[in-house]
């Protein structure tokens, strides 16, 4: 086969391959130059794409045109070994002096390994530091409590008049703006429109609820003004604030927990206790 010279098609294929590898090298140089010139994500990506595409075209043409393709056959032994061989292996494994015959010893070994395996699980408990509260406790407790002042996202204490009508103000316990389960929001509603009183009570229509959706814990950031409903942007649960923040649509099943508040002698808003229920998604021990 090698005796005859390359055919015309082979020569044509070789030319295409060289051209493709040439384009690839050009792409690589282009990438290096772009990088050295200060970098540009688009050009770098395009140059690398050209470089690898050239490589791919060259290799593909090479594989298609210049090497034998297809139609080879390889024998397949199958996986049913000769019965004698299987029997011999089995016999050797279960010979009279074989360890697998010592049932009593194996049981003891099994006991030891099980004990070791179980003991090895204990250090996993350290994943949750021992000085932290137990998980169910931690999920129920928040930094809110009697006397804790309400602050806004910037940490400024909130006065009742800082909450305008028909708007939602995110509020946090003072000193805990970044705590995961503490965010709440304050709104001003007309008390006579309440079809059900808010769980945490209200101050002349000023009500505070947990910001975390009771479905999967996303902040219910979207306030639909006219209907006094809040909407979770993650899974579209919506809560009717006039009906005690009861879920009215979407996958959430429990009302938003309320926060009992009062106006302190300093004129700022204070919590008078924790949320009326654990905030956020439900769990086994949720009351």
């Amino acid at each position: 086969m090698s005796a005859r010279g390359p055919s015309a098609t082979e020569r044509a294929a070789s030319r295409r391959i060289v051209a493709a590898f040439g384009a690839s090298a050009a792409g690589a140089v282009g990438f290096a130059v772009t990088y050295a010139q200060g970098g540009n994500t688009r050009w770098e990506g395009a140059c690398l794409a050209v470089a690898f595409a050239g490589l791919a075209v060259g290799l593909a043409v090479w594989a298609r045109r210049l090497v034998p393709v297809g139609g080879y056959v390889e024998e397949h032994e199958g996986f049913t070994p000769p019965p004698t061989e299987q029997a011999m292996t089995a016999a050797e494994l279960t010979a009279p002096d074989s360890p697998v015959r010592r049932r009593g010893l194996l049981a003891a070994l099994g006991l030891a390994l099980t004990a070791l395996g179980a003991a090895a699980l204990f250090p996993l408990r350290s994943l949750l530091p021992f000085d932290r509260a137990r998980p169910e406790r931690a999920l129920k407790d928040t930094p809110w409590g009697p006397g804790v002042r309400l602050v806004d996202a910037a940490g400024r204490p909130v006065r009742p008049q800082d909450v305008p009508a028909d708007s939602m103000v995110a509020v946090f316990p003072e000193g805990h703006v970044d705590t995961g389960d503490a965010p709440a929001f304050a709104v001003r509603l007309e008390p006579r429109r309440f079809s059900r009183p808010p769980a945490g009570g209200h101050l002349d229509g000023l009500v505070v609820w947990s910001l975390l959706c009771t479905h999967a814990g996303c902040p219910v950031r979207t306030y639909l003004k006219g209907t006094a409903r809040v909407l979770c942007p993650c899974h579209q649960s919506s809560f009717d604030l006039l009906a005690g923040a009861r879920p009215v649509a979407g996958p959430a099943a429990r009302a938003l927990p309320g926060l009992p508040i009062e106006e302190g002698p300093d004129g700022f808003l204070h919590a008078t206790g924790d949320f009326t229920a654990p905030p956020g998604a439900g769990f086994w021990d949720s009351p």
Binding site: F52, A53, A56, A60, A63, G70, Y72, E74, G78
Partner: peptide, 22 residues
């Protein structure tokens, strides 16, 4: 009891590398 196709060397070596490059 058999398998028909192209061989690893040289055909699939080149083709596979081409796929990687693509």
């Amino acid at each position: 009891h058999n398998l028909v196709g192209s061989r690893l060397w040289p055909s699939y070596t080149l083709r596979s590398l081409a796929l990687f490059a693509w």
